[in-house]
C-alpha cells in the first residue's frame, strides 16, 4: 500500500487534496492483501483504496468504532451487525451508516454508560455552564493536557483510545477532581442543582442529588455535580 500510495501527497491549500507525483512512484505491479495491482500510475492507489473500503474487515471495523463511541465500550453485537450490514448494502456510504445508527434504539438508551474522554467531558461542561466559566482558552487546553487529551496531539494516527479502561484511572480521576473544583470556583451564580438537571435530566441517582444539594457552598456543589457519575458518563 505504501508503495502504491507513496505518489499520493496531500497538499495544503484552501482545501486538502491529493496529487500524483510521478517521480515518487515505484513502477511495476504491486500485491496488496493477495491481490495484484498492475502498473497504472496514479490510478493504483485509488483502486487499492476502493478495494480496502469494500473489504469486510473495514465494514466490521467502522461499525464497531461507531457503536463503541456512541453507545458503549462493549456495544450489543446485534447493533454492530446491523451497522455492518448497512455499510455493505450502501456500498460504503458513510451517511447511510450514520443514519442506520440514529435509527437504532440502542443509540437512544437514556441511562448513561459511556465514560467520557477528557475532551468530551470538558466540552460538555462548558456547554452545561453556557460557556459562562471565565476560564481562558489556554487554561482549558492546559487542563486537557493534564487530563491526558491535548487537542490535536493524539498519540498515533489511530487517534485517541475510546474505552473506559484508557481514561479512568485513580490518578486521572484526581486530576478531574481538581479541574472540577477550579471550574466551579469561577462559575459565577450557576445553581448546582439546575446544572445537574440540565446535563443529566431525571437520570440522577439519589446519592448524587443528596451530595450536590447538601454541599457546603455553591461552588462545592457545582464541583460535585461536574464529578457526578451521571456527568462523567453519557
Amino acid at each position: 500500500m505504501a508503495r502504491a500510495g507513496a505518489p499520493e501527497r496531500l497538499t495544503r491549500g484552501r482545501t486538502w487534496s491529493a496529487i500524483f507525483v510521478p517521480a515518487m512512484h515505484e513502477p511495476g505491479s504491486k500485491i496488496l492483501l493477495g491481490r495484484t495491482y498492475p502498473e497504472a500510475g496514479g490510478e493504483e492507489a485509488e483502486r487499492a483504496i476502493a478495494d480496502l473500503a469494500r473489504h469486510p474487515a473495514t465494514a466490521r471495523f467502522l461499525a464497531m468504532k461507531l457503536a463503541r463511541h456512541f453507545v458503549a465500550d462493549a456495544p450489543p453485537p446485534a447493533l454492530v451487525a446491523a451497522l455492518e450490514d448497512s455499510y455493505r448494502q450502501s456500498d460504503g456510504d458513510l451517511a447511510a451508516l450514520y443514519r442506520a445508527l440514529i435509527d437504532r434504539p440502542e443509540a437512544w438508551e437514556s441511562s448513561p454508560g459511556k465514560y467520557r474522554a477528557p475532551q468530551d467531558w470538558v466540552v460538555a461542561l462548558l456547554r452545561g455552564m453556557d460557556a459562562k466559566t471565565p476560564l481562558p482558552g489556554e487554561r482549558i487546553v492546559a487542563a486537557l493536557k493534564t487530563l491526558g487529551q491535548q487537542p490535536f496531539f493524539a498519540p498515533s494516527p489511530a487517534g485517541w483510545p475510546d474505552q473506559e479502561s484508557a481514561w479512568l484511572s485513580p490518578e486521572s480521576l484526581l486530576a478531574r477532581v481538581d479541574f472540577a473544583r477550579r471550574a466551579a470556583t469561577r462559575a459565577g451564580d450557576i445553581d448546582p442543582l439546575r446544572f445537574l438537571a440540565d446535563v443529566a435530566g431525571d437520570q440522577v441517582a439519589e446519592a448524587t442529588r443528596f451530595q450536590v444539594r447538601n454541599a457546603a457552598s455553591r461552588p462545592e456543589g457545582l464541583a460535585l455535580a461536574i464529578l457526578a457519575p451521571e456527568f462523567l458518563r453519557r
Binding site: 484511572s169 485513580p170 454541599a215 457546603a216 462545592e220 464541583a223 460535585l224 457526578a228 457519575p229 462523567l232
Partner: peptide
C-alpha cells in the same frame, strides 16, 4: 471532607468508586 463527599456520591458507581 470534599473527597469524602465525592466518595459517597460514587457508592452506586463501582468503577468510579474503585478508582477513587
Amino acid at each position: 471532607d470534599f473527597l469524602e463527599r465525592v466518595a459517597a456520591m460514587y457508592v452506586p458507581a463501582p468503577g468510579l468508586s474503585r478508582a477513587l
